[in-house]
Design a protein around this nucleic acid. Structure first.
Length: 647
RNA sequence: GCCGGUGUAGCUCAGUUGGCCAGAGCAGCUGAUUUGUAAUCAGCUGGUCGGGGGUUCGAAUCCCUCCACCGGCUCCA
C-alpha cells in the first residue's frame, strides 16, 4: 500500500503503483482535471509517476508556481516539436521555463527564421496541444542517450549528456518529439489552451560569447485563452509605465545622438526632480553623520593603477586623455572611492575620529557595451549617491544597520514595498580568491547577517557572489516589465584600504588599517529615477513632483488674481504655474491631468471675490472651495507627513 | 560587441507592384472666442523620409554601408 500524507495533514492509502493523478481523482474529478504536476517528498515530479510507499504529497495546479513552470517547460517541448516539423534537422540546445513563460535555444543551421514565422509555429503548437499528446518519461543509459543524439547529430545535447552521470538520465517523448530532460512534465499537452510566442532573439550557447550564437524563441502559454488576453493587456499596461516613454511625456530627460549614446540630458523638470531627491538624501545623511565632499570628474591614471581598477577594467573602458605637453594620462572617473581614500589620507586619523563618512553625488563614466544601454537604467555617464565609511572592523555591523535604516527610510518614503535584499558571501569552496584576513571576513559576514536579521529584511543569501574585496548587501526591485534592477548596495572592502595604505592610530598608539564600506542607497540617480518613474507611473509624491499645482483661471479676466494666488503659495514653498492661455476650463483641466499635476486650483469670479480657490485633486475631482491659507496648510501638511522620518 | 527588428514634422502615426508638389491628428504660431471641472473654432508654420553611397529616366519605397533606438545574449568596479 502507498501511504499518502496530504498538505492538510490527512493520511490516505492507495494501491501500489498509484500516481498523484490517482490521488487527485479520488478527491475530485475537477481537481484531477487541473493537476499539472506533484510535489512528492519535496521534489516536483510528474503527476503520472508511481508514488513511493510513503509520500508527502501536494498536488500542483496552475495556481502553484511549480505548476506554471511545469506547464511552461512542457510548452517548450511542444514548441520544439512544432519547430522540428517546420525545420527538420535543426539542433536544439536548451528549453527551460522562465519567470514569464519559456524559451528554447535553437541552432537553425541554414534556415532563416523571422518574427513573421512565429504565428505559424504557434498554430502548429495549438494543433499539437489539442491532440493531448502524453509526455512519456523514460530512463535511458548514458550510452543509449548518446547514441540517440549522435544519430540526430545534435552537438548541444551530446555535450549536456556527456556531463551527466550514467543512471540519472531521462528522456521525455510527446508525439514525434523526444528530448533529453529531467522533467517533470504535465500529464498531456491538452492543458495548453493558449499560446503566444513573444519574441525572437540571439543567445550564446551556455551564455558564453565565445560560443556559437543560437536563436532563442520566447513564448508563454496558458490554460485559458482569457488568461492570455489578460496577460497581453498587462504587458500593454506596463509599456505605458515605461520610464523612457514617461520621461519624454513629462519632459524629464532626453538623449541626443549628437551628445552621444548612453549620455542622458536632464531637462529642467527632471533636473528639479533630481535635485529634490538629492536634497532629500542629503538631509537624511546629515542626520546620520555624513560629511559631503567633492571630487573632480577626471583623475590621474596612477590613481586607478593604485586602486587596481585600471588593471581590471582599463582595457575595456574609455581610454585615457592626455595633457598636451607632458603626455600625462588622466581617466574619466569610473569610481569615486579612490578619491575618497585620498581625502581620508589628507590628515592623520585617530580611532576617536572613526567612523568617518564621506558622501558625494559623484558623476562617473563607464564604457558600457552599446547593446546594453537602456533608457536611464543603463547609461555611460551617471551620478552615484555614493559614500564611503571608514571604520574599525568592530564597527561594521552598526554601520550596516545605519545604512539599512537609511535605505528603508527611502523605500518607505517612496512607497517601494516590493523589494528584496541579497546578501553576497564568500564561496566556501574557494576561499583563496578573496583578499583580506579570514578573521575579518568572518566578522564582516556575520555582521551583515546579524544586521539583516535585526532589521528583518526579506533577504536571500548567495554564497560565492561576494566581490573579491568583500561581502555585500544589495537591494533589488523590479521595473514595470518585471525586469529586475539593483538599486541600493552596501559593500565591505578590505582591498582599497590596503592598496591606499589607509591607517588610523588606535588606543594602543599603534597604526591600524580601517575597513571601508561603500554604500549607495539609490544606486545611481539615473536608475533610481527610472525605477521610481515606473513604480509610480509618473505620479510622483507631492513632495517630489516638480509642479504641485496648476492654477487655472476661468477666463483671462482672472489671470491677475491667479498670479497673486501663485505668489502667495510660492511664499509657502508650494510650486506651480498659472495656465493663462485663453482656453476653456475643461481644456486646462485636461492638460493638467495629463501632466500629472496633483492639485488644480480653479479661480473665477467667485473665488476672486471670496479670496479663495476651488481645489481639484488629480484623479479625484472637485474638493470644493477653500481659503488660500487653508490650501497651503493642506499641501504643506501632506508633504510633511510624506517625509516623516519615523523608521 | 553579437543576433533579430525598427528609423517619415517636436509627439503619435499613414504612405509597399519604385512615378505627379510626402500626408493626418496632436503640439507650436496668428486671429477670433472670455469660457465653471478631461479637448472652442479658423488660418498658418514645420520634414534634404536617420547619415552616406549605389541601382534606375525616376527612390521614403530596391541594394550596400555607417549611426541611433527597440527586444534579447554577454558584461556591469
Amino acid at each position: 500500500m502507498v501511504k499518502v500524507t496530504l498538505p492538510d495533514g490527512s493520511i490516505r492509502e492507495y494501491a501500489d503503483g498509484s500516481t498523484a493523478l490517482d490521488v487527485a481523482k479520488s478527491i475530485s474529478e475537477g481537481l484531477a482535471r487541473n493537476v499539472l504536476a506533484a510535489n512528492v517528498n519535496g521534489e516536483v515530479v510528474d503527476a503520472t509517476r508511481a508514488l513511493p510507499l510513503e509520500a508527502q504529497l501536494s498536488l500542483l495546479t496552475w495556481n502553484d508556481a511549480e505548476g506554471k513552470s511545469t506547464m511552461w517547460h512542457s510548452s517548450a517541448h511542444l514548441m520544439a516539436e512544432a519547430l522540428e516539423f517546420y525545420y527538420p534537422g535543426i539542433k536544439l540546445a536548451i528549453g527551460p521555463p522562465v519567470a514569464n513563460g519559456f524559451y528554447y535555444d535553437v541552432d537553425f543551421m541554414d534556415y532563416e527564421i523571422r518574427e513573421d514565422d512565429l504565428p505559424k509555429i504557434e498554430a502548429k503548437m495549438k494543433e499539437l496541444a489539442k491532440s493531448k499528446l502524453e509526455f512519456v518519461r523514460k530512463e535511458v543509459s548514458k550510452a543509449d542517450a548518446l547514441s540517440y543524439f549522435e544519430e540526430k547529430n545534435d552537438p548541444y545535447k551530446l555535450e549536456l549528456i556527456n556531463e551527466l552521470e550514467d543512471g540519472s538520465i531521462t528522456f521525455y517523448t510527446q508525439g514525434n518529439f523526444t528530448d533529453l530532460c529531467r522533467g517533470p512534465h504535465i500529464p498531456n499537452s491538452g492543458f495548453i489552451k493558449a499560446v503566444k510566442l513573444t519574441s525572437i532573439a540571439g543567445a550564446y550557447w551556455r551564455g558564453d560569447e565565445n560560443n556559437k550564437q543560437l536563436t532563442r524563441i520566447y513564448g508563454i502559454t496558458f490554460p485559458k485563452q482569457a488568461e492570455l488576453t489578460e496577460y497581453l493587456e498587462k504587458v500593454e499596461e506596463a509599456k505605458k509605465r515605461d520610464h523612457r516613454k514617461l520621461g519624454k511625456e513629462l519632459e524629464l530627460f532626453t538623449f541626443s545622438q549628437k551628445v552621444g549614446q548612453g549620455l542622458p540630458l536632464w531637462l529642467p523638470k527632471g533636473a528639479a526632480l533630481r535635485e529634490r531627491l538629492e536634497n532629500f538624501l542629503k538631509r537624511a545623511q546629515r542626520k546620520s553623520g555624513y560629511d559631503q565632499v567633492i571630487s573632480p570628474h577626471i583623475g590621474n591614471k596612477e590613481l586607478y593603477v593604485c586602486s587596481g581598477h585600471y588593471e581590471k577594467y582599463g582595457a575595456d573602458s574609455f581610454q585615457p586623455i592626455k595633457t598636451p605637453d607632458e603626455n600625462e594620462e588622466f581617466l574619466l572617473k569610473p569610481m569615486n572611492c579612490p578619491h575618497h581614500c585620498e581625502i581620508y589620507k589628507s590628515k592623520p586619523r585617530s580611532y576617536k575620529d572613526l567612523p568617518v563618512r564621506f558622501a558625494e553625488f559623484g558623476t562617473v563614466y563607464r564604457y558600457e557595451q552599446s547593446g546594453e544601454l537602456h533608457g536611464l537604467t543603463r547609461v555611460r555617464g551617471f551620478t552615484q549617491d555614493d559614500a564611503h565609511i571608514f571604520c574599525t572592523p568592530d564597527q561594521v555591523k552598526e554601520e550596516f544597520i545605519k545604512v539599512i535604516d537609511l535605505v528603508l527610510y527611502i523605500f518607505k518614503t517612496l512607497k517601494f514595498d516590493q523589494f528584496k535584499a541579497q546578501v553576497s558571501l564568500r564561496d566556501p569552496e574557494n576561499p583563496g580568491k578573496y583578499i583580506g584576513s579570514d578573521e575579518n571576513w568572518k566578522k564582516a559576514e556575520q555582521a551583515i547577517l546579524d544586521a539583516v536579521e535585526e532589521k528583518d529584511l526579506p533577504a536571500v543569501v548567495e554564497y560565492g557572489e561576494a566581490a573579491f574585496y568583500g561581502p555585500k548587501l544589495d537591494f533589488m526591485v523590479q521595473d514595470a516589465l518585471g525586469r529586475e534592477w539593483q538599486l541600493g548596495t552596501i559593500q565591505v572592502d578590505y582591498n582599497l584600504p590596503e592598496r591606499f595604505e589607509l591607517e588610523f592610530t588606535g588606543s594602543d598608539n599603534q597604526k591600524h588599517r580601517p575597513v571601508m564600506i561603500h554604500r549607495a542607497p539609490f544606486g545611481s540617480m539615473e536608475r533610481f529615477v527610472a525605477v521610481l518613474l515606473e513604480h509610480c507611473a509618473g505620479d510622483f509624491p507631492l513632495w517630489l513632483t516638480s509642479e504641485q499645482i496648476a492654477i487655472l483661471p476661468i477666463s483671462d479676466k482672472y489671470n491677475s488674481y491667479a498670479q497673486k494666488v501663485l505668489d502667495l503659495l510660492n511664499n509657502s514653498d508650494i510650486r506651480g504655474f498659472v495656465d493663462d492661455r485663453s482656453e476653456k476650463i475643461g481644456k486646462k483641466i485636461r492638460d493638467a491631468e495629463l501632466k500629472k499635476i496633483p492639485f488644480m486650483l480653479i479661480v473665477g469670479e467667485k473665488e476672486a471675490e471670496q479670496q479663495e480657490v476651488s481645489v481639484r485633486r488629480r484623479q479625484h475631482g472637485d474638493l470644493g472651495a477653500m481659503s488660500i491659507e487653508d490650501f497651503a496648510k493642506l499641501v504643506n501638511e501632506a508633504v510633511e507627513s510624506e517625509l516623516a522620518m519615523n523608521v
